[in-house]
Design a protein around this nucleic acid. Sequence first.
RNA 1: GUGGGUGUAGCUCAAUCGGAUAGAGCAUCAGGCUGUGGCCCUGAGGGCUGGGGGUUCGAAGCCCCUCACCCACCCCA
Length: 418
Amino acid sequence: MDKISRLRGFRDIWKDELEKLRKIEEVARKYLNLLGFDELKVPILEKTELFVRSIGETTDIVQKEMFTFHDPSGDSVTLRPEATAGVVRAYIEASLFATQRITKLFTIGSMFRHERPQKGRFREFNQIDVEVFGSKGPLIDAELLWLISLILDELKVKNFEIEVNTVGCWECRKKFKEVFLSYIEKKLDHLCEDCKTRARRNPLRIFDCKKDECLFLTKDSPLLFENLCEECKIHFNKFLNYLIKFEVKVKHNERLVRGLDYYTKTVFEVKSSALGAQNAFIAGGRYDGLVKEMGGPDVPGIGFAIGLERLSLIVNTGNPKENLTVFIAFVDDKAREHLFRLVKQFVKSNIRVFYDPDSKSLKSQMRYAHALNADYAIIVGEEEIKNNIVSLRNMKTGEQKSYPNDLEYLIKDISYTK
RNA sequence: GUGGGUGUAGCUCAAUCGGAUAGAGCAUCAGGCUGUGGCCCUGAGGGCUGGGGGUUCGAAGCCCCUCACCCACCCCA
């Protein structure tokens, strides 16, 4: 029979990495809870239209990266490529705007994008997604970055940099696009191929280009930052001010823009040089028009997502503490009759217990106990049964003693050792 | 979607110019003690050399196709 392999870009997550992901989630949950966020789960599969409308029809995500297919009844459905759309949909569908002035939510789960895999990039990847609805002021923007720094501090993440910028509101961005386009028009021929398409689709992304030629051509270009309306300017300055009060260090990157259509005003990215090309592991921003666009009331929103696979690449967590582990070895099949009684008793006493489910030589069983890194081996054989005892071998010291076979004293003794 | 690199045992890697039965270490299993792990010793199992086609007397190595992985572009978390 041929073996079946996993799908490209999809992974099995084991042991150490899984432990790391759990640790990250645990720390994030702690601070999310302390700052009043509620967890929710939203579906992995949604109507395709939800993402087309929220993320933007012209974005790469929608145009070529979504897992979209028809369900058996013929409807077009899509595996979520990001979390915000679903959370916004849920917020509107539950009419939370009617009962809460401010809504703070987070969700944890996997997202799907049909991209070519590389370092820190998979087709199924996990995110912690955080969203706040109902506050238009810059204080909440700063609070989110403080939240991020609390989480990263506790995880002892070093070598990261928070970059912030503003992309303005719809009006000042629209105006700036005209200013910028008339500037870049003359230089269009000299831009790289990618930037030529950007000029048509999403001109602001030209600022993001890493190619020297494009960097050079836009060097003395007008910046969105200089063309902001009063309100956006004040918002951003207050935001920077609050960050100082929260003691969150950031870098203002005037060229930072985001690929999703819905962002307004504040945007930010957290980057690490240790990640290779996919160096942003947290990113987000404000999206004041999105809830309305999605059929809800005109409620402002802001949020961010943590890429868990990327974050786990730069997190070091110590080895998890192993439970006290006991291995029971049986010398012969007659001794095996005692298995059920002994195993039950250990489990009831919260002690991790192993035994060889197949009858093997004692030597083989002891090797297995060693491989399992057991703290103790219990040996049961003819001699023990005759004397109504069990032998307890300390696997770390090699010391071996006898205990009455009702295990009461034995369990008391070994429980002290871990 | 586009480039570059890499595919040999469960893992890490050998195999001269295209040459004979594709090897080693680790891991696994068994034995060395008829009731005792680690260290040591002995032995065993494990490969369609990613897959398919071609060239050749002969292919792990050359050619073509394909798949997967890694890295980068693009995009993004």
